[in-house]
Design a protein around this nucleic acid. Structure first.
Length: 561
RNA sequence: AGCGGGGUAGGGCAGCCUGGUAGCCCGCGGGGCUCAUAACCCCGAGGUCGGUGGUUCAAAUCCACCCCCCGCUACCA
């Protein structure tokens, strides 16, 4: 039995996550973690709010509150939302917690002592009025190429040219508009090229997915360079290096360490010894769920950081980097209000199973995919409700009405064999983290059941007095239903549990190791049949824009940001 | 601009690595069944696989160039 640390990218709390964020990281990680538990593996699912960095500091400043005050609220809000989506975190924590802060400082001091940190001086724009160094994008001015008046220091949005702050004509501070001065500052750099030595060999031999492997190898081929790990921000983790007072650790270099500190935090809370078991054993298996923009931080930088401590940590066992979910053909955009945010989604359609299943069915595993309402409607109404829900209902009501709720017979061998094949395909896909593909096999099970029922026509058998044959047929479809519940569990936990009870099973379908019971015969006595799902109304597609507007208005009142 | 990923029936996607009658779901047309939440099952129509050129007996699949979309490109997370 392996030890798995399943980590999902840490949501940055300057905003509420949208559906694309959800499917790319947290939801996918949860589905995978649930699958592993179902297989009987030892799993820790961890993530948390990424709350340091300039954008938060700026937002807090704008509101006249302390950054902590702001992130307290957003963290609580987002954490509750993930609970509503039934994300089964073992620890959903935050980067501004004492355990993480100390852990990060310890790690960086080890790296420092091992000689992977050096300093370099640089000249940066500094706003005398706000008393802070200005990150590139917070210095604005006239673009030297196209003359746009509000070009940012990193790039001109009008002509797309990449800039450096000194290029700007009449530069000014993005917050107060005053003219920045150029001031010398010192930063601490991480010697990534040295720390990453040997990682190429690991990568080439690793079984990481093609997109991650290729991207990373290419990234390395283009040449690794030392990266600045300190910032002149106030809001963040104080850099522990001698002489670095007033500096903080760049968020990217500390948030990824949260996968480790989150486990440490569990130990401190519960007096357990999980960190040793899950993080200090090189045979344990860290798996990360991230978006495609995030690959090198997980495939290179985190491993290099850990390696530079001189201690032994497991390398990434797998990294599932999804492409992007688009919204009706466009990019999700907070500013332009394009898309659906996770609080609005539940306000609009309150059942988390519907969103979970639909999002996994649209999961951008190989390429960008498109969230469309039409597709959402199709998945909920036709896949969940008709194929699965109605199959369950027709089987169970038939057993209730014609057999008084109890049936026992012989399970069709051919069906058993087909289910076994689907189960194997399911496991294979899941192991490769092809969650969308795996969800398809659950549907195939239900379709197999529907087809079997249509072909065998037990209602006709009863009329012809062939009661024993009818019993065999119904017991066989009950067998299929049991498999549907089992395999649906990671995707739609509520419905799977309900179905599990309705077929008369004991305990919870989510019990550890339950997937190993695939192929067993179902109980004889069923529970009370009830519809598993309900369709979205026929006029849903015509009304959805209006409904979304209403949901958005409601949700915005309680949103902290 | 450079690098990476992608462009396959009306919609959503798989196939491409390991060339050889183009596949799945929805929608549409026809039929069947009546146990079921007007659900289910079967049959059918619909694609010159972004464009051009090349390699090959044979290309969605390999190569080159072009067009469009997405991401990354060191202080934005």
């Amino acid at each position: 039995m392996a030890k798995w640390v399943v980590g999902s990218a840490w949501p940055y709390v300057n905003t509420v996550p949208h559906l694309g964020n959800l499917v790319g990281s947290v939801l996918s990680a949860d589905v995978f973690a649930r699958y592993l538990r179902l297989k009987g593996e030892d799993v820790l699912l961890v993530s948390g709010s990424d709350e340091h960095g300039t954008p938060i500091e700026v937002e807090a400043k704008k509101r006249g509150v302390e950054p902590k005050e702001l992130t307290d609220k957003v963290h609580a809000y987002v954490k509750k939302l993930f609970e509503e989506y039934l994300i089964s975190f073992d620890n959903y924590t935050r980067t501004h917690n004492p355990v993480h802060i100390k852990f990060v400082q310890d790690i960086f001091m080890k790296i420092y002592r091992n000689g992977y940190i050096f300093t370099e001086s640089m000249i940066m724009p500094y706003c005398p009025k706000d008393k802070m160094f200005l990150p590139d994008r917070f210095t604005v001015g006239r673009c030297p190429y196209c003359g746009a008046p509000d070009a940012r220091g990193d790039q001109c949005e009008r002509c797309g040219k990449l800039l450096d702050p000194p290029d700007l004509v009449n530069p000014r501070c993005a917050f107060c508009g005053s003219r920045p001065i150029w001031k010398k500052t010192k930063h601490w750099f991480f010697d990534l090229p040295r720390a990453a030595e040997g990682l190429v060999e690991w990568l080439e031999r690793s079984s990481l997915p093609d997109n991650v492997k290729k991207f990373t190898l290419n990234w390395i081929k283009e040449g690794l360079t030392p990266r600045a790990v300190t910032r002149d921000n106030k809001w963040g983790i104080p850099a522990p290096f001698p002489g670095a007072e007033g500096k903080t650790i760049y968020v990217w270099f500390e948030a990824v360490l949260g996968y480790l500190s989150a486990v440490k935090e569990l130990d401190e809370k519960n007096g357990t010894n999980l960190f040793e078991q899950f993080w200090k054993d090189t045979k344990s298996r860290p798996v990360y769920f991230i978006g495609k923009d995030n690959i090198p931080f997980h495939s290179i930088i985190l491993p290099a950081l850990l390696r530079a401590t001189g201690e032994e940590y497991p390398l990434p066992y797998n990294i599932s980097a999804t492409e992007y979910l688009m919204y009706e053909g466009q990019k999700f955009s907070k500013r332009r209000r394009i898309g659906v945010w996770i609080d609005e989604a539940l306000e609009l359609v309150p059942n988390p199973d519907y969103w979970r299943f639909a999002l996994i069915r649209m999961r951008p595993e190989e390429r960008d995919t498109n969230f469309t309402w039409r597709e959402f409607y199709r998945i909920v109404n036709s896949e969940l409700n008709d194929d699965i829900g109605n199959f369950a209902h027709r089987v169970l009501t038939f057993i209730e009405r014609r057999f008084g709720g109890s049936v026992k017979g012989k399970v069709d061998e051919e069906v058993k064999e087909k289910i076994r094949e689907l189960h194997e395909k399911f496991v294979e896909a899941m192991d490769k983290i092809r969650l969308k593909e795996a969800s398809g096999y659950v549907l195939e099970m239900a379709r197999l059941g529907n087809k079997y029922l249509n072909e065998k026509e037990p209602w006709r058998l009863l009329k012809e007095g062939k009661e024993r044959e009818a019993r065999d047929v119904l017991y066989t479809t009950l067998f299929i239903l049991r498999e549907v519940a089992l395999h649906l569990a990671p995707f739609a936990p509520l419905a799977a549990e309900k179905l599990w009870r309705m077929i008369g099973e004991e305990g919870s379908v989510h019990e550890r190791g339950r997937l190993g019971e695939s192929g067993r015969e179902p109980p004889e006595r069923i529970g009370k049949p009830e519809p598993l799902f309900h369709k979205l109304p026929k006029d849903f597609l015509e009304k959805v824009d209006q409904l979304l507007e209403e949901a958005r208005r409601k949700v915005e009142k309680r949103r902290p940001i």
